[in-house]
Design a protein around this nucleic acid. Structure first.
Ligand SMILES: [Mn+2]
Ligand SMILES: [Mn+2]
Ligand SMILES: [Zn+2]
Ligand SMILES: [Zn+2]
Lengths: 146, 146
DNA sequence: TATTTATTGAGATTGAATCTCAATTTCAAC
DNA sequence: GTTGAAATTGAGATTCAATCTCAATAAATA
């Protein structure tokens, strides 16, 4: 059994909820993807495969997947939420190209330290963070520096 | 003349646009505030003072104020945009208390350096960034550490 | 004054997200 | 395998911020 399925089953069971066919379809579709995606996209993909699932169930299930720690909402400033995998991905932040919209992931160990320092100085109990850097990606600059 | 008014007038003039009474009211109201605010709040405040202004004009004018560099959109993850002053405020980032919703501003000079480093390593021309740290504020922890 | 151009506002529209509730499914107990 | 309680689903209604439409109005210009 795929690890995400086991986790989802366990999480649901521990809350007295059921692993239904609809939830299975949505889980599969969410983990077939390997980029950031939107709820409406997911719904569209599922319907294209003639698997009928309601919009309400998609939204409800994505919320459950977030609660179970399998997915995460990530906000790129548009008018809709985006989701990404948590399972199998370490924490990372994002570069966002303002010209082509490309999203590039990165991690930087110093950022974690800096976060600790800021929290200490501000007497804040920081639990999580998001850093987004907006600019122009290398492709859009035609691979010329600056 | 208040500096924000001069800037707004100049910016509008340079684009062949007019400084109207409605735009004046909205500018004033936006700069009376000294925290993060939403378009609907602003509209409500204006109407409470019996100054009739349409929702469309408020949204349109806020957009102009952003384009003129007087305001900035800042996203706290809710379902609506928030605005904050740019004029008279240096760049800063935000701590967001997940219990009481309080927004705390901070600046940290190392963050700018780190951003430069990340951009260099990733071959990305970074123009701006936002860092949000989510957690629990000192007040919500009852002023006890951790 | 006449003409052009920008602006406004009431209301319609969009679109993501949520809600409602009757019908259906699931599961455990008998 | 029948029964009943509890969870789940889906079609469609609803919400809400934000945007759009377009006729009426105001301001600038000739
Ligand atoms: Mn990501
Ligand atoms: Mn701020
Ligand atoms: Zn790009
Ligand atoms: Zn707090």
């Amino acid at each position: 059994m795929r690890p995400e399925e086991r986790i989802f089953r366990n999480c649901l069971a521990s809350r007295g909820l059921r692993y239904t066919p609809e939830r299975n379809i949505i889980l599969q579709e969410a983990f077939n993807r390997h980029d950031h995606f939107e709820a409406e996209d997911l719904l569209y993909s599922i319907r294209k495969k003639e698997k009928r699932t309601s919009r309400a169930t998609v939204y409800r299930t994505l919320e459950l997947l977030v609660q179970c720690g399998l997915l995460q909402v990530v906000d790129f400033g548009g008018n809709s939420h985006h989701y990404e995998h948590v399972l199998g991905h370490q924490h990372h932040d994002h570069l966002i190209c303002e010209r082509c919209g490309r999203i590039i992931e990165f991690t930087h160990r110093q950022l974690e330290k800096l976060k600790e320092k800021v929290c200490q100085e501000m007497d804040f109990d920081g639990r999580s963070h998001t850093l987004k850097i907006f600019g122009i990606c290398d492709q859009c600059r035609g691979n010329t520096k600056r």
